[in-house]
């Protein structure tokens, strides 16, 4: 068993609210500088930049393809997948339920840049990624599971867009595989609020700026830095585990 440091929730410039500096090569450099062994790319309602970050990283660090789905209840759910194709399939299903983006929306909410591994913009996303999808929480979790992924309640401690803020009571039958605590929540020990749910807890930066990367992370006790080992760690199989760093 080895120890790896993971930051499992990072946005790229595809997310309208993320900075233009969040390009694949810049994210990889910042992650390496922070000593991260694994990151997950989770843009709002799309996974279109995940493969580019994987390509930019090469063998330098493990990059998990993910997504942050906004459910119809406006709950944010992180999905992490075995590969970029699985994430992309889910992203396509989610984004097709969103309204069309237009120049005014881009002006107001931010540019949605689809980037290549070198960080060049190759397209802009035509759907409004800041909007809520039509998938309810349970449907989003089922969609993630159906593509072989794991579903994590994003920034569960936060007063906006979290399971708790939107639904009041944590639905234990939602099928979620884990709970994510924000950097601010971690600093205040908010993970203790969720200890009774018997779900694994990870801490992630939810980076929208390069300087956020690694501001909070999770230690993975696993055999190697892969999605499958991460999935086993979330289930606590064979002594593997997630530990708040």
């Amino acid at each position: 068993m080895r120890r790896f440091t993971a930051d499992l929730h990072i946005h790229t410039a595809l997310s309208p609210c993320a900075m233009a500096e969040m390009t694949p090569p810049a994210i990889v450099r910042a992650a390496a500088a922070q000593g991260l062994d694994m990151i997950a790319i989770c843009d709002h309602n799309s996974a279109r930049n995940a493969a580019a970050v994987q390509e930019a990283a090469g063998d330098a660090l493990a990059v998990i393809a993910g997504i942050e789905i906004t459910t119809s209840e406006e709950v944010h759910v992180v999905g992490l997948f075995p590969d970029a194709a699985a994430a992309g399939a889910v992203g396509a299903r989610v984004s097709e339920t969103l309204p069309e983006n237009d120049a005014e929306a881009e002006e107001r909410f931010g540019r949605q840049s689809v980037l290549d591994a070198a960080g060049r913009e190759v397209a802009t996303e035509p759907r409004m990624l800041s909007a809520a999808s039509t998938f309810p929480l349970q449907g989003a979790v089922a969609l993630i599971h159906g593509s072989g992924g794991v579903a994590i309640a994003a920034h569960a401690d936060r007063p906006s867009f979290s399971v708790q803020s939107q639904l009041g009571i944590f639905p234990v039958d939602a099928g979620l595989d884990g709970i994510e605590i924000s950097a601010a929540g971690r600093a205040r020990g908010r993970e203790n609020d969720f200890s009774l749910l018997a779900l694994p807890i990870v801490a992630s930066s939810d980076s929208h700026f390069l300087s956020d990367l690694g501001s909070c992370s999770t230690r993975l006790d696993v055999d190697e830095a892969t999605f499958y080992e991460l999935a086993l760690a979330l289930q606590g199989i064979g002594g593997r585990r997630c530990v708040l760093a």
């Binding site: 929480l137 639904l167 009041g168 639905p171």
Partner: peptide, 29 residues
């Protein structure tokens, strides 16, 4: 309110709630 955490914290017993929130938790709350 559509935020069930807000309903939980502030709605009064015996009242009526107007909401766009249709998740099962709306009944639990």
């Amino acid at each position: 309110s559509d935020l069930l955490s807000d309903v939980l914290a502030h709605a009064a017993p015996g009242g009526v709630l107007i909401t766009a929130q249709v998740h099962l938790n709306v009944v639990a709350v």
